[in-house]
Write a protein that binds this DNA or RNA. Structure first.
Lengths: 159, 159
DNA sequence: GTTAGCGTACTCGGATACCGGTTGTCCGAGTGGCAAAGG
DNA sequence: CCTTTGCCACTCGGACAACCGGTATCCGAGTACGCTAAC
């Protein structure tokens, strides 16, 4: 999986703690974790294209959440950055070579192997779609109560 | 996911239909699907290292199933070829930069983000581990009854 | 006719190149804010 | 003092390079079979 997914999730959480109306430039979000700013910017652009974030150009600009944090799932973030296509892609080798004689039958049945992998991947997607960033926020605030304030203070000091 | 996983699963099914005691060289398995023989050989080697297949050197040699097909899961094949490590790897960026001051606390709590992704990945692995190659074989034999005989005939003719 | 020895052909196994994609960087278009000048 | 105007600094956005892992290939070690030749 793309490494940018991790950065994106953490950055979205920070944006949530800083308030949904406040635009934060990519350079600040990157500095908070010592990440390459230009590359994080690239990932955030993908989130904008997916409708997860909104962007404001110019001075005092930056990125902000495009919708409530409770309506953003991990699946949304993964799909935006890592792409929509599934991990196992069936190339239909069963119709190549000696097996099918290189000819696809008239009413092709779905590939059983692909179906088996699809079932597993659907379970993965379902779990990702079931967890919102709000869920993660709540868990963090319970296990590490000081974190949100520390984030706010850092971004206020380095405004 | 590695493309060799697809090749490996189909090849294991063919080995099962040809009989567990018959060793088939990689070149024959590859020719059946018009795959690059040397590269498929590499994947089969990984299955041997994982204990899924056994190999016989020399003439009349080749690969064979190392254990009953009902005891080989999709998870085994994926782990052998694609590796054991999980897709989302947490790099602990929460301890870098402004957040934790670059210092890891004494009793570090598990990263909530990583836990969330791990939960989804565990669901994926569970589904893969729940499906054996025997299950897939049975489904294929029901939806495409002629396939096993066609496989046996082709491999017998091109022995 | 039998048997020991040798050569050959075939297999796996690992070491070695090649290439597409993720990772990383850079510069241009656009915009808001500030300062200075004029009324 | 207030308004207008021009400049500047800062932002996103997409185009451009670099590195790495998957993809693909090749050659060497080892073994079983078959042929030959000697007994």
């Amino acid at each position: 999986m793309n490494e940018g997914v991790e950065w994106a999730v953490h950055s979205c959480l920070n944006l949530a703690w800083l308030g949904a109306d406040r635009a934060v430039p990519a350079s600040r979000l990157a500095a908070f974790y010592e990440l390459p700013a230009a590359y994080l910017n690239k990932q955030l652009q993908a989130l904008v294209r997916a409708g997860v974030l909104g962007s404001v150009p110019g001075p005092k600009g930056g990125f902000r959440l495009a919708r409530p944090i409770s309506e953003i799932t991990l699946m949304d973030v993964v799909a935006a950055i890592d792409g929509e296509d599934e991990a196992f892609r069936c190339t239909e080798i069963r119709y190549r070579g000696g097996s099918g004689g290189g000819r696809v039958p008239d009413n092709p049945k779905p590939c059983t192997v692909a179906t088996a992998f699809r079932k597993a991947e659907m379970a993965w997607r379902r779990e990702l779609a079931a967890q919102t960033l709000a869920d993660i926020m709540i868990t963090v605030e319970r296990t590490n109560p000081g974190a949100p304030d520390r984030v706010r203070r850092w971004f206020d000091d380095n405004r």
